[in-house]
Structure formats: structure tokens, C-alpha cells
Computed example of a mutant assay.
Amino acid sequence: MKRTSTRLADGREILYFDADDGAARAVVPDPRPLDASADSCEVRRDPLLGDAVVIASHRQGRTYHPPVDACPLCPSTEGRASEVPAPDYDVVVFENRFPSLAGDNGRCEVICFTPDHRTSFAELDEERAALVLAAWTDRTAELGARAGVRQVYCFENRGAEIGVTLAHPHGQIYAFPFITPRTTRMLATVAAHRARTGANLFDEVLAAERAEGTRIVLEGEHWSAFVPYAARWPYEVHLYPHRRTADLTTLDDAARAEFPGLYLELLRRFDRLFAAAAPTPYVSAWHQAPVAGEGRADFALHLELFTVRRTADKLKYLAGTESGMEAYMNDVRPEDAAARLREVASR
């Protein structure tokens, strides 16, 4: 892999990741007359729950469902300059023009998986998926080393049903100045289990799913994917490396090599769930340990993938119990979801 860093017209960083480490990447200047990037993000703390909440009012003006010929994530062409000045790329990462977090309050980056606007992650080949994994790892290491950053979160939202406003295949990378509420709850549960039993709860969950088997979706030599016992979403899969590790930077070479093929198969199965309504909208989220501090050694890197679609013509909306009280009600039995995801395996 070759990484090339440069700047956009308003000072934001952009990084090109090329699969060929000997590739000659010509740095193309950004010709747009952009003002210096500005933001008004603020982190506030909920006094009752203790959760951090980000206030980012400037994001009201962000780009919203542009036509294909005005996509800001496609490579630039003659007469049309985008967020990516180069005429082509393999994988590219750049600071978000409309960030939720910036300056002392962290950083938000966009990662484009391919220059092809009309494809998806599931349609990438294994070499490109491996390059995306390398880019995620690079950003986790670099952002995690920044002063004030507590946790790095790599994720992809796909589909208008999820709320995506740009159709180009892309994800985001957030460097949080706080540990996210979901991770905070995981850490507390894992710490309590360690104090009570002396064992690691992540290890026990993975071992139990592999031994019981009914919720396993697919399994490799170094990874297992399963529908969790208490899944919140109609179709939800958790993907764990067999060797527990805190984050992407410490993932071993064997697991790193196996991941692309296994992850692509998982995404393709999601698209086959509702063939008449493909592509399936989803959220794909890497859960990583905080960059430092108590609890990091016991945390297990894993990916959580879920869709808001429950049938070909029905979506799972968060009802009052879920959005108001965080008490989830799932319409699909986890064991049935796992069986269906096994049925749609590649032949």
C-alpha cells in the first residue's frame, strides 16, 4: 500500500491509498475557491444520563442528495471539480467539509471505497476490500495518537432508508473526544463480569455462539459471524476475530488476510435477503476499544452489521419504546434470521 497526503483548497487534509506501493501518485491541486474550513461543533454532557451529545448546527447546510453528475465523492473531471481533485483513485480519505467533530472536539473523515459511483462495497474485489481495511487501520492508528482523542469509530451507512445523503460508496471515520455511550456501557458490563467471574465476557459470548451454532451465519479459520442472542434489529450480524484484540491496529496478519473474502460474502448475503428490494440498506460499524485507559485490555474488536429492512416491503422504524426508552422489540427471531442468512450463501 502507498499513502499520499496533500491538502484541499480550504486546508483540509486528503489522503490517497493506492494498492500498488510503487504507484506514482501525482498530486493534483484543488482548483476550487473555497474559504478556510470552519465549524461550530460543541460537546455537551447530558446531566441525567452522563452521555456526551454533539451539537453541530452548521451541518444543516451540508450537501443533500446531489445528482450523479454533481457527486462530490467522484473523481474530478475536466470542468467539474469535486472533493477529490485527482481524476482517479483506489481508496481516498479526506476531512469532512461539514464535520460533526473538529479542532479540539475531534475529527471527522470521509472514506471513499471506489471511484465508481454506481457500485457498492459488496461488489468490490478482495484486493480493494483489503485496501479499505488497511486505510481503516491507518486512520485508527493516526487519529488515535492525536491529543484529546479517546476513541476511533469506522463505519458505513448505506441506503436512503438509513438516512444517507450521498449515494457514492463511502463510509466515515470519527475521532471522538469522549468514549461513546454504547462503548461505555460495554466496558462497564465487561468489567463487572471480570470482577465477578475472573473471565472475559467477550470471549465467553463468542465461544458460546460457536459451540451452540444455531445463530452462526458463516465461520472462517480466524473469524466468526453470528446473529446475537438478543438482536435488536431484524437482521443483525456481529463479526468477531477468534483472537481477541483491542482494535484494528493490533489485528494479526492471518485475520487481516481472511477478512476481505469473509466480509464481502456477508455483505452479499445481506443483498440477497430481499432480492426484489436490493440493495439492502445497512449500517456497518467497527467497535474498537478506547485508545487508552482501563478496560482496553478486556475489550474485543468486532464489527456489527444490521439493516433496517425487515421484509422486502417493510422497514423497521424505531417505535416509542425504542426511541423513547431504548427498549428494543424485534420482529424477527434471531435463530430465523441466522437461518435465512445461511440460506442465501454464495453457491
Rank of each mutant, 00 (worst) to 15 (best):
R3P: 02
T4K: 10
T6C: 14
D10P: 06
G11M: 11
E13C: 15
Y16D: 04
D18A: 15
A23I: 12
P31A: 12
D39W: 15
C41N: 13
P47I: 08
A56G: 06
G61N: 13
H65G: 11
E78F: 08
S82C: 11
E83M: 08
A86V: 04
V93L: 13
V93C: 07
R97N: 13
P99G: 10
P99H: 07
A102F: 01
C112Y: 06
C112D: 01
F113D: 06
D116L: 14
H117Q: 08
H117A: 09
E123D: 13
D125W: 06
E127P: 01
A129W: 01
A129M: 14
L131Y: 07
A134P: 01
W136K: 12
W136M: 14
W136N: 07
A141F: 04
G144I: 04
A145C: 08
V152F: 05
Y153H: 15
E156A: 11
G159A: 09
A167Q: 11
A167N: 10
H170M: 09
I173H: 02
I173E: 05
Y174G: 02
P181C: 12
A188N: 07
A191Y: 02
A192C: 11
A192Q: 15
H193D: 00
R196D: 15
T197P: 00
T197G: 04
D203L: 03
A207S: 09
E209P: 01
E209K: 00
E212G: 06
G213A: 00
T214K: 04
L218T: 02
P228D: 05
E236S: 00
P241K: 00
R243T: 09
L248N: 00
T250K: 05
L251T: 07
L251K: 07
D252N: 13
R256H: 11
G261Q: 08
E265V: 07
R268S: 09
L273N: 07
Q288G: 06
Q288N: 11
Q288F: 08
E294W: 13
A297C: 10
T307S: 14
V308T: 07
R309V: 02
T311Q: 08
A312V: 08
A319M: 12
A319I: 13
A327H: 13
D336A: 15
A338D: 04
